[in-house]
Nucleic acid binder design. Structure first.
Lengths: 91, 91
DNA sequence: AATATATTTAGACAGTTGTCTAAATAAAGG
DNA sequence: CCTTTATTTAGACAACTGTCTAAATATATT
């Protein structure tokens, strides 16, 4: 869980995830959405991959990134439980 | 939202929140749950407070911390929307 | 094989973060 | 008022992070 929260703590990485929600995308197209170098985006993609939030697959010259929806759902549940406990109030 | 994610990215701070879910607590009692100095805990409490995740109120010599349940719920909704989009799949 | 395209890796560097110790502030009780 | 207790603030420092440039790798095309 720590890796996931660390991964989510950066705005660029959250925006990458938002892009991938719209559909799979190759590294270059992802990078075109940001004002930083492709090398830096590659670094962010690695962190998201280490957290298991995304997956990658080579297709010819390009590498296509996609959401790992399983981990997305698990994280949702985890966060939901975490915050839900707090918002119920305690008797 | 960025401050909230940054705040959540540290394990100590997440554990502080978990403690506060169980009920309000003063700074010293919070610190007793961790192997780091009270000064460091104070620093973490500040970050959580800046993110509006917790509130504080002095009561005599002690300062009592409590969850800001409003922001807790808002964050839950935000995260829910964020992750939910991704787990629905795209047609 | 040589070149072009797509992406990653390596190394460097500045800025941020988590921690510490020491000093400062605030309230309570002699 | 002086001391004790509770907590924060300030300043220092090592570790981590996000970024860059330059070089490396992998595939495709000629």
């Amino acid at each position: 869980m720590n890796a996931i929260f660390k991964a989510l703590s950066d705005p660029t990485r959250r925006k990458i995830l938002e892009l991938l929600i719209e559909g799979d995308m190759n590294a270059g197209d992802i990078a075109d959405n940001f004002p930083i170098t492709k090398a830096s985006i590659s670094h962010h993609l690695n962190i998201l991959k280490d957290a298991d939030l995304i997956m990658s697959e080579r297709e010819g010259q390009t590498i296509i990134y996609s959401l790992n929806t399983t981990v997305f759902q698990e994280t949702l549940k985890w966060v939901y439980d975490f915050f839900d406990k707090g918002s119920e109030g305690h008797e």
